[in-house]
Design a protein around this nucleic acid. Sequence first.
DNA 1: AAGATTACCTGAAGGC
DNA 2: TGCCTTCAGGTAATCT
Length: 322
Amino acid sequence: MPELPEVENVALALRECLVGRRLTGMDVRFGGVLEPSAEAVEKALVGLVLVKVLRQGKYLLLEFGEGDECREAGAGYTGIRGKDVLAHSVTIERGCRRAVRLHLRMTGQIFVDPAYIPDRHTHLVFDFDGLPVYYRDIRKFGRLALVAADADGAFAVAPPHVGPDMLEIGFAAWRGRVAARRAPIKAALLDQGVAAGIGNIYADEALFRARVHPLTPAAALADPDLRRIFNAARAVMRLAIRHGGTTYLNFVDFRGQPGNFRRKLRVYQRDGEPCRDCRETLARLMVAGRSSHFCPRCQPAPGGRKARRPTTTRLRTPRGRP
DNA sequence: AAGATTACCTGAAGGC
DNA sequence: TGCCTTCAGGTAATCT
């Protein structure tokens, strides 16, 4: 499932391959992924040049403009892979600007790969001046939505209730947003209004690395605990970006290559297997409606002393892995 | 009023 | 073999 690192890799790919190119056509095979309608999106975007790709949490904003009155932007921005990803970018001085907000939700995928063969889950085919770009989404949860400019003519990357990106926010600001929460820290990490980008995989990985039990109330955590969680969440996501993201079930990159961060996972979907640090059997329980994977020894239950009651810690045998 | 639950979808996997 | 159930989880809407 795409979380911050996977979405960041999509952003890098779109900047590398598509910024500066004109959208010359669109084949809508399933219009349900487009908002407010397939017709509106097609009418708004076709003929314009992709000028900017921004990310906030799991949201991507694709900004389009007219091809005339362009100038090279450059600006010396160096992508995470060390390539100057804005080398081909252009900035529109004035004229028409439009933007769409993309969220991949659970199973959305973007392919910029001439060898890709569309299947029945491929809902959109973009023609970027001869370069085909495919949008595929097995479960049809993802959305590509036209967004209106605000009063200043700018486009918000994410909806207003979404908090700052987890890789952008500072510790003090983040602490200010979680410290008063009585909800389990796992729920606070998943709350996109607190900070955006963390999903179930990286929340579990961050809590394991910080040695904090997922059910611990956020408000019960001392400053050093919060600091460890904050640092662990950012570190694990930065590492995942460098490894091309996590492939679980079906995340692959824009060329169809699976990310290779999965083998680095310490707890996610490893319940029933031994902890890599202490050999204790990893456990699983439900927090905030989602399965949470943790080590009962490395991450002791809140309130201390006893291990969690068997009724709340459900062990399960490993399921088949793809 | 924050926290919990459900709807939205499809495919994989397990049980029988 | 094949039908049925459960599970996966991001977000919005609904419930408590």
